[in-house]
Design a protein around this nucleic acid. Structure first.
Lengths: 336, 336
DNA sequence: CTGAAAGCGCTTACAG
DNA sequence: CTGAAAGCGCTTACAG
């Protein structure tokens, strides 16, 4: 690997001049600059990242933190990653992958080793204490997929408007398909996304003379959670419904299976809608209507803001970035 | 951030002594060593990664290269990532994410900047020229999910035995369910995994008096590809089959939909089996029998071998690591 | 415009 | 066992 010294020797100048030439400084004669740049190119010179970082205190590296040690979650994270990467590439940065589960996490280590200039951390289940600990790392940080309701010095949040998204779904069931008895299946109390979807649902139906029942499923369990809730509901005849709004697509998939088994026709007897717009919504005879939370867009916003923040070294003025979800109409709601 | 100098000042010794103490060198008085370590701990000292790298020429960082700019592919890559990460954490390394699509890729840049000590690159569609270019980077590299049939100085491969996996499926259809007319749906000529699955299929059925037809679907298209192939096959009555072996689960999902629509019962009339063991195989009334290629295990092997390789600086003796796939029996084959 | 020098924060061969 | 010095490959303030 060629270094500045090698180039300097060949060009017959000092390394400092080479450095200036390659950084396109005004203070080098154009002619000489071009000569040096040519030599560098011929030698395939690429600056050593460690030396650069050590001197400039810039790593051109951001951390991406996936939730829990498991890197689970599928397409959703990939979309966010794609969005982030657009800007990472544009700025010639790179992404360092790590995980966070408290003080001794890999993420904290790389931060304290000064490896990264900023971080993007995928949220949904951080509590205020954890957010404060993250803020204390003193690193520009963006939390994606979670609203942060109080002001933190080093944290910006980017999230999808789940209240709105659930509202759109409820509205669609009521206005377009004239449903009047809606079963809501939540994803768990720990998830802010689930809570917000509940909020959006109740907010939208109140005052509209709609009967409803709110049940609590579990995102992590996927279809089996939606399945057993709907089975129980039907068996026990606790609540007769003509529509199901599930807080995730996997819950909706389970719900739909339960309906089929009980000879309830979807969408004729019961409209079903999900949330997240995962691929699998297309895999069924009756494809599932859903809301796309715009994960790609969240990633783009996160990447854009973080990279501007760390390269311009000036704090962004907007600190709470909300992304708009979109209704994706398929057949399970009753549209054709 | 505390540096060695800060600690040295407090301890009243030279930085070199501090360095030795923190690296647990024999050549420091035990008493002094402990004193220094205590001070370092109190100051929350963490060594600066750039300085360390610059001096030692070790980055404690490996690159993970996902195929194409798209970071697509879902659960499969996540499983590999999880496996890799087990060893990355154990060795206190970190993962730098990048992508490769030829000479000017982000991956090549980070390698030339000396940022990483090794790389893991997820394959399946690299041709020999590309592999040679990668080899020329002169970096310990592991290709996952692709067999490399010729010897390369800097590349080891880790792959799942797709020939065996397809063989297991064919065997299961023939021996257990006594199927005699098998429709095979491939995933595309470009994919080594698909080619190997074809190979495993044909190898297993030859000489067993089995009728078969090999068709070519497309992995990227997913269910719609499997769907249209099966629809055509039924409509044109070209080949009457009592079993379908699809080279991926998404192809199998489409195939199953087509059967349902044509009032062909699965598994009574036709056995269907897929490959990859994705989550969605469980989402259906008739869950799909599949083969798990052991992505997690591939990741583990890749992580283990690469980290040993780069930390011990001695080339591994095994250079072609094959992982064993496993049959996951569900209902679509006819088992109950 | 160019060079010589200092320094980023480490490690380690060389003295003593 | 400990210190002083050199050096990894850069950047940049200081002279000239």
């Amino acid at each position: 690997m060629a270094t500045l010294r090698d180039i300097a020797k060949l060009a017959g100048v000092d390394v400092s001049t080479v450095s200036r030439a390659l950084n396109n400084s005004q203070r080098v004669r154009t002619e000489l600059k071009e000569k040096i740049q040519k030599i560098a190119k011929k030698m395939n010179y690429v600056p050593n990242a460690s030396a650069y970082s050590l001197k400039k205190r810039i790593n051109r590296l951001i951390a991406l933190v996936l939730p829990s040690i498991k890197f689970s979650g599928g397409e959703f994270y990939q979309e966010i990653l794609r969005g982030i990467n657009e800007f990472v590439e544009e700025y010639q940065f790179a992404i360092l992958l790590s995980n966070y589960s408290g003080r001794n996490s890999a993420f904290v280590r790389v931060v304290r080793e000064n490896r990264v200039d900023g971080g993007i951390i995928i949220g949904d289940i951080f509590n205020n204490n954890e957010l404060k600990e993250l803020d204390a790392l003193n690193l520009p940080l963006i939390v994606v997929n979670q609203r942060v309701d109080f002001k933190l010095k080093n944290i910006i949040d980017v999230y999808s408007d789940n209240i709105m998204g659930a509202g759109i779904l409820a509205e669609h069931l009521i206005k377009v398909h004239e449903r009047k008895k809606i079963l809501f299946i939540g994803g768990g109390e720990d998830y802010q996304t689930s809570q917000d979807r509940v909020k959006g649902f109740t907010k939208t139906i109140t005052g509209k003379n709609i009967q409803y029942e709110i049940t609590n499923g579990q995102f992590e369990q996927g279809p089996s959670s939606g399945y057993s809730i709907v089975k129980d509901m039907i068996k026990q005849k606790k609540f007769i419904f003509d529509a199901i709004l599930a807080a995730s697509d996997t819950l909706a998939i389970g719900a739909m299976r339960a309906c089929f088994e009980e000879r309830i026709r979807v969408p004729e007897d019961v409209s079903i809608v999900g949330y997240d717009n995962i691929q699998a919504t297309n895999y069924f005879r009756v494809p599932i209507t859903s809301v796309d939370p715009s994960a790609l867009h969240m990633g783009q916003k996160a990447g854009e803001f973080l990279l501007k923040w760390v390269t311009e070294k000036t704090e962004p003025r907007e600190r709470n970035l909300k992304v708009t979800p979109h209704l994706i109409i398929r057949k399970s709601c009753g549209c054709s």
